[in-house]
Amino acid sequence: MSVRTTPGVRLLPNAITVLAMCAGLSAIQFALNDELAAAVAAVAAAALLDGLDGRLARLLDATTRMGAELDSLSDAMSFGVAPALTLYAWQLQDNRVGWVVALIYAVCMVLRLARFNTLLDNTEQPPYAKEFFVGVPAPAAGLLVLVPLMITAHLGREGWWSEPAVIMLWMALVGGLAVSRVPTLSLKTAKVPPQLVAPLLVLVVVAAGGIAVFPVISLVIVLLVYLLHIPYAVYRHHWLANHPEAWSAPPRERRAMRRRSQRRLGLRPPLRRRVAGAARRVRLPRRGQPDGPRRSWRRLELRRNRDEQAPR
């Protein structure tokens, strides 16, 4: 019996999904014990395991309907219920509005996951739709909403970022991004140009080293960079929607099309080399010479008479 058909191996992706759910829910217990760094680590572990179970299921050819439903339920618990209850147990217990905001965030995450499942069966989407997520994905949202807790865990003290009003506003904002239709890039279909492979690997090493030495604050920086990519994702999605000819083009040709469209809009700076009709460079006068640029028959594009060119 091969590895792909072994029943025990087929259970491995579902076991990882269950471990992800347990890790996410453990963040609540850590928050109740005032172990903030452990609560962040639990949700981060859940996000890491969530990224592994689906890939492992496809690798082992063990994708099932039950696994897909279990993955959605695990995401709802790990990145919806667990972060909401963690923040509520940390700072919002004495605030009645805090429980309402926690419920709103959890409901937004469940709605986001339900919409994600319905989009999987939609065959009318354009080809470029697979390059984007609709809204912020559940693992990213579950980590983003814990940024105030991360900052407090790193600094070891509370500040304006840990005020209940700020936390409730932040939870509402992240929940809104998760359930919104704002496009975000999907790393599953991202293609890196060959010339950017080496710099990207260096950045990965820097990020891994930062997370190993300063895990909490490095994770905060990565999450903020992720937020900053959203305007670019919106621009790219809008450009692809208006250029059907680029839907099936390879990345190199697509970048060339984008550069041409930018050049037509006048967004690129002018080239340095001289073109027809461009103004010539004007030199400043040297010391001891009268004001005004130097003039010569070559710069004025005038030819000398043959009599003047003949030797005397």
Rank of each mutant, 00 (worst) to 15 (best):
A89W: 02
L113F: 09
P127A: 12
S74F: 05
M66P: 03
L70M: 14
T123W: 04
M109P: 03
P126C: 08
V81G: 12
Q93W: 00
K130H: 12
E131L: 11
W90I: 01
T63Q: 13
L113R: 09
A57S: 03
P126T: 09
Y128I: 07
A129Q: 14
E69W: 02
L120N: 15
S74T: 14
L73T: 02
M109A: 14
D121H: 12
A102D: 07
L73R: 03
N117C: 06
C108H: 02
Y128P: 10
F133Q: 14
N95L: 04
R96T: 14
M77S: 08
R112L: 00
E69P: 00
N117V: 04
P126A: 07
A82K: 11
L119Q: 15
R112W: 00
D94R: 09
R112F: 04
G98T: 12
S72I: 11
L87C: 12
A106V: 07
R115A: 05
L103A: 15
N122F: 06
L113P: 11
T63H: 05
S78C: 10
L87G: 08
Y128G: 09
L92Y: 14
F133G: 11
R58T: 00
Y105K: 08
E69Y: 03
E131S: 14
R96K: 06
T63E: 15
F132L: 06
R65W: 00
D75S: 05
E131Y: 06
Y128R: 08
Y105F: 15
M66Y: 15
V134C: 10
L103G: 15
G98Q: 10
F116H: 07
C108A: 15
G67M: 00
L103W: 11
E131G: 11
V110H: 02
E131R: 11
V100Y: 11
G67F: 03
L59T: 13
Q93R: 13
R112A: 12
R112K: 01
F116L: 03
A76C: 04
G98R: 06
A106K: 06
R115V: 02
F79S: 09
K130Y: 01
E124H: 14
V107E: 03
L103S: 15
